[in-house]
Nucleic acid binder design. Structure first.
Length: 276
DNA sequence: TCCCAGGCAAGGC
DNA sequence: GCCTTGCATGGG
């Protein structure tokens, strides 16, 4: 059961909702696990604290409407799992990470985050994003908002190198400037998935994998299948030895169908986490 | 230490 | 079109 008040969202533990799985499955980077086991999460201009009590989780925030949508509480995950569970390779992954929810993230934040993610590791990605928000975000007393396209467009490549972005610095400048000067991220939603992907890939630093992640995590598209190095390593063997990135992506997309994006997250989290 | 990371762009064929 | 190569950085 999910209960919403004006200061918290309460989720009983029989729901598909597991903070550790949701935050540590690699879909998002602006979270912190506190010593208490609570999670502090920043998203766009908002923030929330997720508490774990004996019988329920409580999302403490002054914007419950935002986080109700952010955590995708309008979607029935048990139904999705039911439709996936008999497909190949999925059962153990769901047993491990069945509490994942695919977050509905801010588009620009998600785009920038996954440009930074290219050929990078999660610990470093988090550090770069943290320094980026501290430098260009707005201080809201305890946390920073994600920078606007305009503020990012006004910085130069040297600035992003200073944050540790390395050779991605140029991509960040170019993409921020494209978005700030008229590339309409919202209008991409009206396109079908293939056209939306091509549109996103016209941005600097956005290739097939980053575009899939952005579509999955901030456009609610589930007919995508991001293939990264972990998926590649694991599924070369399990995909009929179809091992080139694009061929594997097509194969797994077709195999899991309309819910491929969910399947991908369950598989990624379980395999990368070493559970399988 | 040395390998590697939620890949991409550019250049060669 | 497909394949190869170079790439900045720091975590483990």
């Amino acid at each position: 059961m999910i209960t919403v008040t004006n200061s918290e969202i309460i989720i009983t533990k029989d729901e598909r909702f597991e903070p550790r799985a949701i935050f540590e499955c690699g879909q998002v980077f602006r979270y912190e696990r506190l010593d208490s086991g609570e999670y502090h999460i920043c998203a766009g201009r908002e923030a929330a604290l997720i508490k774990d009590t004996r019988d329920e989780y409580r999302i403490i925030t002054d914007n419950t409407t935002y986080f109700y949508n952010y955590f995708d509480f309008g979607t029935d995950y048990s139904k999705i799992i039911d439709s996936l569970i008999d497909k190949p390779m999925i059962k153990q992954s769901v047993a491990f990470g069945g509490g994942i929810r695919i977050l509905r993230q801010e588009r620009f934040e998600c785009l920038i985050s996954f440009i930074i993610s290219a050929n990078n590791n999660i610990a470093r990605i988090r550090g770069i994003i943290e320094r980026l928000t501290a430098a260009l975000g707005e201080n809201r007393g305890g946390y920073y908002t994600f920078p606007t396209p305009e503020s990012m467009a006004n910085a130069d490549t040297e600035f992003y190198k200073m944050l540790g972005a390395g050779y991605r610095a140029r991509y960040l400048v170019e993409t921020a400037r494209q978005v700030a000067s008229g590339f309409d991220l919202d209008s991409v939603q009206s396109l079908d998935t293939k056209a939306a992907k091509n549109r996103l890939m016209s941005l600097s630093g956005v290739g097939s994998k980053v575009a899939d992640c952005v579509l999955l995590f901030s456009y609610g598209r589930k007919d995508v299948f991001p293939v990264d190095t972990w998926i590649k390593k694991t599924y070369c063997k399990l995909s009929n030895n179809i091992c080139s990135t694009e061929a594997m992506r097509e194969y797994l997309l077709k195999l899991y169908g309309e819910y491929a994006g969910y399947a991908q997250q369950y598989l990624f989290y379980a395999h990368r986490g070493g559970a399988i």
